[in-house]
């Protein structure tokens, strides 16, 4: 074999290696994939609309519930008593209204034969109106109290699964304070945190292959949205309202990550999705 041929063979192999190495490098660095994906779900935090003791807890931890199913009931004695009180008040207002109306009707007749002044008639008419308004007010208050009574039975706002139930019978729950959370059924999706260097390769509608850490079976889906903002740490201020500008090395920059939401295609039955678990995401390049 001539020296020239030997040199050429080696050079060809080296050139091939350069091309192949470059291809691997490009693929590793610039393909739209991430190991930093998370399974997400719509979580509803459930807070009671009224305060009181929990008298009956109808669900267990991790129980599946249907929409409208009873979750827990709050002691309703106080709300029941308030209703009774208000019912009595409504009755009183009703009687007061009847009386005022009766007076007005009687005075209407008297006014016809000019026994009383027009002014007096007007006063009784207004009193009757006022009594009616007070009756309406009492009725409205009764409705509110009845609503409160209804709200002592806390129901599931949608079908899903209870998670991390820490509520026990006898606990005191406060109005508006979350006491349990619900994972909405079928609301699972995946968020991939892609490096900003790969952002130009990602677009809505792109097909994605998702591999969960918990299962070897790949899932598929498509990109539905790309986050439009992430926090900038340089905006933080100190007590003197001066910006906290982060120091960086002149050459080394870490690519930040942008969340990309991916809608899942129907998931096979043997795959269990758990919100918060890790997933690797690879987007098809087209």
């Amino acid at each position: 074999m001539g020296t020239v041929v030997r040199i050429i063979v080696t050079l060809i192999i080296v050139a091939l290696a350069v091309l192949a190495g470059r291809w691997v490098w490009e693929r590793y660095l610039h393909a739209p994939w991430t190991r930093d994906g998370r399974v997400q779900a719509h979580i509803t935090t459930i807070s009671p609309d009224v305060s009181g003791w929990v008298t009956q807890l109808a669900v267990q931890d991790n129980q599946k519930v249907e929409k409208g199913e009873l979750l827990f009931t709050i002691d309703n004695a106080r709300y029941q008593a308030a209703i009774e009180e208000q019912q009595a008040a409504v009755k009183a207002r009703e009687l007061a209204w009847q009386l005022a109306q009766h007076e007005y009707q009687r005075r209407t007749k008297l006014a016809r034969n000019n026994t009383i002044s027009q002014e007096e008639l007007e006063v009784t008419r207004i009193s009757a109106e006022q009594a009616r308004a007070e009756y309406n007010l009492a009725m409205a208050k009764l409705n509110t109290l009845q609503l409160n009574l209804q709200r002592t039975r806390v129901k599931a706002p949608q079908a899903g699964t209870i998670v991390n139930l820490d509520l026990r019978e006898g606990n005191y729950v406060s109005q508006g304070k979350p006491v349990l959370s619900l994972v909405r059924r079928g609301s699972f999706y995946v968020t991939g945190y892609f490096e900003e260097t790969k952002l130009s390769l990602i677009h809505e509608g792109q097909r994605a292959t998702i591999k969960l850490m918990s299962s070897n079976q790949p899932l598929t889906g498509k990109v539905v949205s790309i986050g439009e903002a992430i926090a900038d740490t340089n905006i933080n201020r100190n007590e003197q309202l001066l910006p906290h500008v982060q120091q960086t090395f002149n050459w080394v920059r870490l690519a930040q990550r942008v969340p990309v939401d991916i809608e899942l295609d129907p998931v096979p039955e043997n795959v269990r999705l758990v919100a918060g678990t890790t997933a690797s995401i690879h987007l098809n390049e087209q």
Binding site: T10, I13, L16, A17, V18, A20, G21
Partner: peptide, 12 residues
């Protein structure tokens, strides 16, 4: 040189 290059090609 050849060996290293072949390794890179195999890796690819």
């Amino acid at each position: 040189w050849c060996e290293v290059s072949l390794f890179v090609c195999y890796l690819a």
